[in-house]
């Protein structure tokens, strides 16, 4: 127990300020106001790997590390699409995941946002379209926003999430 307490004390708080994005560069306060206005509560995200190489997954997981501390900003990952407002989709959509992706999207309540993650999510990346791959996410379900990169780093993922929320406010 002493080791645990000592590690906490010596580590301190590591969380960095929110990454800036073009439209509105939100502060923690404006972000949370936006979320309260649009959803009335914290933003809930569900991730689906539709055929990714697992690179994007690692960077999405990093959003929850103490530096980015996504949950501290009022955004959390949930286990079911039925609890989710936003869907992060990684990978080119493999033929074998097409049905599962559609069903996940359909299970989400409205209003809902979809972000296609990574070069593969955007357009199929190095995998393109083939007998096994449908290419980008938008070929299967409606996409609100795209975060490019192979894999995109956590700051640009965070930015992409904020930008999607901010664009809803502008509308």
């Amino acid at each position: 127990m002493w080791n645990t307490l000592s590690r906490m004390l010596h580590t301190g708080l590591l969380t960095e300020s929110l990454p800036t994005c073009d439209e509105a560069a939100p502060t923690l306060e404006t972000l949370q106001n936006d979320l309260l206005k649009i959803l009335g509560r914290a933003l809930c995200i569900r991730h689906v790997d539709a055929g990714s190489c697992n690179g994007c997954e690692l960077e999405i997981q990093a959003l929850n590390n103490p530096y980015y501390n996504l949950e501290g900003a009022g955004i959390k990952f949930v286990a079911s699409p039925r609890h989710a407002d936003m869907l992060l989709v990684t990978g080119p959509v493999s033929v074998n995941m097409e049905e599962a992706l559609k069903r996940t999207y359909d299970a989400m309540p409205d209003p809902k946002w979809v972000i296609a993650i990574g070069d593969c999510g955007a357009c199929g990346g190095v995998f393109g379209t083939s007998y096994a791959s449908r290419g980008g996410v938008a070929s299967i379900i409606p996409v609100n926003h795209v975060v490019m990169g192979c894999p995109p780093n956590p700051a640009s993922l965070f930015s992409g999430i904020l930008r999607t929320i901010a664009s809803t406010r502008i509308e």
Partner: peptide, 22 residues
């Protein structure tokens, strides 16, 4: 098999010099 992307087939269209990216 859910994430099968047909990589072996894609390799056939790659060049020796850029196959490492795939």
């Amino acid at each position: 098999g859910y994430t099968h992307k047909g990589i072996a087939k894609l390799f056939e269209n790659a060049s020796q010099q850029n196959g490492h990216r795939l």
